[in-house]
């Protein structure tokens, strides 16, 4: 399983990345939506993208729309991982094509529950 963690905070990339690695994921990181698109174009095709909302250059919502507009990335599961938690924003992200939404702060257990919902919990990790 491969994941791309997109967040402008190095601390948050580290937290999300560590949890995913513990579940057995291979993890790449990007500091904004633009960098993340570059990683995808280089040929890294993740099973999962964890996407912060507020980022410089290209925010998470724009990234979701860009990925959904490209049929080559149809297999990629998109999960917002953000402190934005107004109902209207969750609706907006889901409408743009995000599959799930995890609100910061979250625990490793919460990440595991979301991966289980998405069918992205690697074999051997107990739900």
């Amino acid at each position: 399983m491969r994941a791309l963690v997109i967040d402008d905070s190095r601390a948050m990339r580290r937290i999300v990345g560590t949890i995913l690695k513990d579940f057995g994921y291979e993890v790449r990181e990007a500091g904004d939506g633009r960098q993340a698109l570059d990683v995808l174009q280089e040929g890294f095709t993740p099973d999962l993208c964890c996407i912060d909302w507020n980022m410089p250059v290209m925010d998470g919502l724009q990234f979701v729309m860009a990925v959904r507009a490209n049929p080559a990335y149809r297999q990629v599961t998109l999960m917002m991982v953000t402190t934005e938690s107004e109902t209207g924003q969750i609706v907006k992200a889901l409408a743009a094509g995000a599959h799930e939404y995890l609100i910061k702060p979250f625990t490793a257990d919460a990440m595991r529950d979301k991966l289980a919902l998405l069918g992205l919990l690697p074999e051997g990790v107990s739900a």
Binding site: I90, I103, F106, A110, D113, K114, L117
Partner: peptide, 14 residues
């Protein structure tokens, strides 16, 4: 917030 983060699909939350 922590409780709704635990395995509740976002579509059901909203």
């Amino acid at each position: 917030q922590l409780e709704v983060n635990r395995g509740l699909p976002a579509s059901m939350l909203v």
